[in-house]
């Protein structure tokens, strides 16, 4: 037993090393091709993300929505669904939060309005995910296509709102709707660049997700159905219904991330409100090998890449999309290394 564990740890170390080597050699080639020094590029990303407390706070601002979406995706991945629609669910959450704030601006009682907007965001995100789930379970539409389609619809809705009914007095522009009054911002502490409430909420969601997956029937059902829906049905579960539950949970958390973007980051609705954090979370969860414990560090790493790469256009003649190249090649490298490991295991 002890020895088996030793071998397992060793193989994990080898796998991680192989993954990093693969991903960074690819990225380095990309940087070299663009004619810039790779080490300098990496240096700027590190300095720009964890070089000061201010930068770390900025990274954490990105970390919060990534963790929220990733936790939700754990449910859908466990039950065997590809919830690509998470991006649209973030957008719908943002829209719902904005709608409540616009209505509540005249009402007063900001704490009540803020809470209500969070609930509305979770509800709307959840319903948007439910739509994809119903298309899947009742309509026989693959959830990937359903989710992608709904993402386009969500983008259409947000653009229509910003350029139509919710446009700024006089002008409609890509910069979004009229900013909200200060009392409708997510409360923070003086001197903090990141709301401690949001940080606490993200940690709370993480613990709650862990607890739900481990100790409740929801987690057991998701695990069972994801691994064998047919046998789960014979053992008394209804895979279709549980899939809808998992989608709602994922959509609810994505909606919460959308609300966070409105309440704590932009304080208005902008077209790019989701900042692709939904898609990025899919990568986070895949890289975490669908295990909750790896989500916080990997989400932090991805957030750091996003924030740090903003330095690239300023310091070098490079686009900040290098962060995306690193993130993408990391996930691909992980999948490849996993595939290799599986094949070798099967051969032996």
């Amino acid at each position: 037993m002890q020895r088996a564990k030793g071998i397992e740890v060793k193989s994990v170390v080898v796998q991680v090393a192989a993954t990093l080597a693969l991903a960074f050699s690819f990225t380095t080639v990309v940087v070299l091709l663009s004619g810039e020094p790779p080490l300098a590029a990496y240096g700027h990303i590190v300095a720009g993300s964890v070089g000061s407390w201010l930068k770390v706070a900025q990274v954490l601002r990105v970390w919060v929505p990534l963790v929220l979406c990733s936790c939700g995706l754990l449910y859908t991945f466990q039950i065997g669904l590809w919830n690509i629609g998470v991006e649209g669910q973030v957008i719908l959450g943002a829209i719902a939060a904005t709608a409540v704030l616009r209505w509540g601006a005249a009402v007063g009682a900001p704490t009540g309005i803020l809470s209500l907007s969070l609930l509305a965001a979770m509800g709307c995100g959840g319903l948007w995910a439910l739509a994809a789930g119903i298309l899947k379970t009742r309509g026989g539409v693959n959830e990937i296509f359903a989710g992608l389609g709904l993402n386009f619809v969500a983008v259409g809705i947000i653009l229509w709102l910003i350029f139509g009914p919710w446009k700024r007095p006089g002008i409609a522009s890509m910069s979004g709707t009229e900013p909200f009054a200060r009392e409708l911002w997510l409360p923070t502490v003086a001197g903090w660049r990141i709301s401690p409430y949001a940080l606490a909420a993200a940690l709370g969601v993480l613990v709650l997700t862990w607890w739900t997956l481990k100790y409740t029937r929801v987690g057991l059902a998701c695990r069972a159905i994801g691994r064998n829906p047919h046998a789960s049905f014979l053992l008394g579960l209804r895979p279709d219904r549980w899939m809808l539950v998992a989608m709602m949970l994922a959509g609810g958390l994505a909606g919460l991330a959308g609300a966070y973007q409105v309440l704590a980051v932009y304080h208005r609705l902008i077209p790019a409100i989701s900042s692709n954090y939904g898609y990025l979370s899919l990568l986070v969860v895949m890289l975490a090998n669908y295990r909750w414990v790896w989500i916080p560090p990997i989400a932090f790493f991805f957030a750091a890449l996003n924030v740090g790469s903003i330095q690239l256009p300023m310091m070098l003649q490079m686009d900040s999309s290098l962060a995306g190249v690193i993130q993408g090649s990391l996930v691909l490298a992980t999948l490849v290394v996993h595939g290799w490991a599986r094949r070798r295991q099967r051969a032996s």
Binding site: R223, N228, L234
Partner: peptide, 9 residues
């Protein structure tokens, strides 16, 4: 293993 039981559980 395909229909009756759930591999991984």
């Amino acid at each position: 293993l395909e229909e009756g039981l759930i591999p991984g559980l």
